[in-house]
């Protein structure tokens, strides 16, 4: 009897594994500022959202974009410019950043989705680099200096974001909101078609699905979320710079997603926190950070191909 009850309990745990994991994650993020530096947490959350956006493409459509820094970086420029020069309130600054990313996503996506695999990756990289050099040249980005001293402003006109805990709450709400939205996209009728396309594109076409349109919509959604992440980061650090729009940033988001677990729901979050923590502790060793990252990448590909969360899900035999 006891065993049956236990088995039933296990089953319930398994069925709701994602909901439980979400509650645990939310709980941790709510109490985290009591023991960790808020700016560090906000940085990790922005990257976590960025990685989730990237994972939406690679994990659920099977498209490897090597140019996601384009959306992240340009959204952060536009948000910073909107807040500083145009005097936009923070919510509108972030929205303008996201809208920019969506527009760029539509253009890049329309050009890139005609190709598969490595060619897709190369087109996204080429277009992202083009826009990087545009960012280097354009006067409003202030080149090497970036857009500095971006005002955080007052959210909805009355919540002062200069206050660190207000800012943290806003970033957390944005992150959790977008995370849930991505979860919904993955588990929507649209998401089912995306998974079919990932699994077997010719078959999906033969069932009458115009796969390129689905891929384009997914690409734009992914770019938009990457944009929200970039725009939010600009307000957190009060800075938009070339680092966020350059290609190593595209590489870093791939690494985060891979380390955390490609195609898992929580993997990108775990990967982003892992990488940001690592960078934080390893700043003292300077350029060696890249060597350590390289070693992690190799170890991950060789030994933990499913990533942190992927391996964990495998061991616990649950969906995460």
């Amino acid at each position: 009897m006891q065993r049956v009850a236990k088995a039933r309990g296990d089953l319930a745990l398994r069925r709701h594994s994602e909901a439980i994991a979400f509650l645990v994650m939310t709980g941790l993020l709510v109490v985290a500022p009591t023991f960790a530096y808020p700016v560090f947490l906000m940085k990790a959350l922005c990257f976590a959202l960025f990685a989730c956006a990237f994972n939406l493409l690679i994990g659920f459509v099977g498209l490897l974009s090597f140019g996601h820094a384009l959306f992240f970086g340009w959204a952060s420029y536009i948000a910073a410019h909107a807040a500083k020069v145009w005097g936009f309130p923070p919510e509108l600054a972030i929205l303008s950043g996201a809208a920019t990313a969506a527009g760029l996503g539509a253009i890049v996506g329309a050009l890139a989705i005609r190709r598969q695999g490595i060619y897709f990756a190369m087109i996204t990289l080429a277009l992202a680099q083009m826009m990087y050099f545009f960012a280097v040249q354009a006067p409003f980005t202030h080149g090497e200096d970036g857009i500095q001293a971006v005002p955080r402003g007052k959210l909805f006109g009355f919540i002062d974001l200069a206050d660190q805990s207000n800012m943290y709450i806003m970033v957390l709400v944005i992150f959790l909101g977008c995370f849930l939205l991505i979860y919904r996209i993955i588990n929507s009728p649209f998401g089912e078609v995306l998974k079919a396309i990932r699994e077997n594109e010719p078959r999906a076409i033969s069932l009458g699905y115009k796969s390129e349109r689905y891929k384009l919509v997914a690409f734009v959604l992914s770019a938009t979320f990457a944009g929200v992440a970039g725009a939010t980061k600009a307000l957190v650090f009060q800075l938009a710079s070339l680092t966020d729009v350059d290609w190593p940033m595209s590489g870093e988001v791939i690494l985060m997603t891979l380390v955390g677990g490609l195609g898992t729901l929580f993997g990108p979050v775990a990967g982003a926190f892992f990488m940001v923590t690592l960078e934080n502790y390893l700043t003292t060793i300077g350029q060696w950070v890249f060597v350590v990252q390289g070693v992690i990448f190799v170890v991950c590909v060789l030994l933990f191909r499913r990533g942190i969360i992927g391996e964990l899900a495998q061991v616990l035999r649950v969906k995460l």
Partner: peptide, 28 residues
Amino acid sequence: FPHLTVLENVRVALQRQRGSSFDFWRSK
């Protein structure tokens, strides 16, 4: 579709009856 269940395989075809499924905001 190798990593979908048998039921999901068939259902994704039946889903075509809805026309296009671009409704990413709705639950599956």
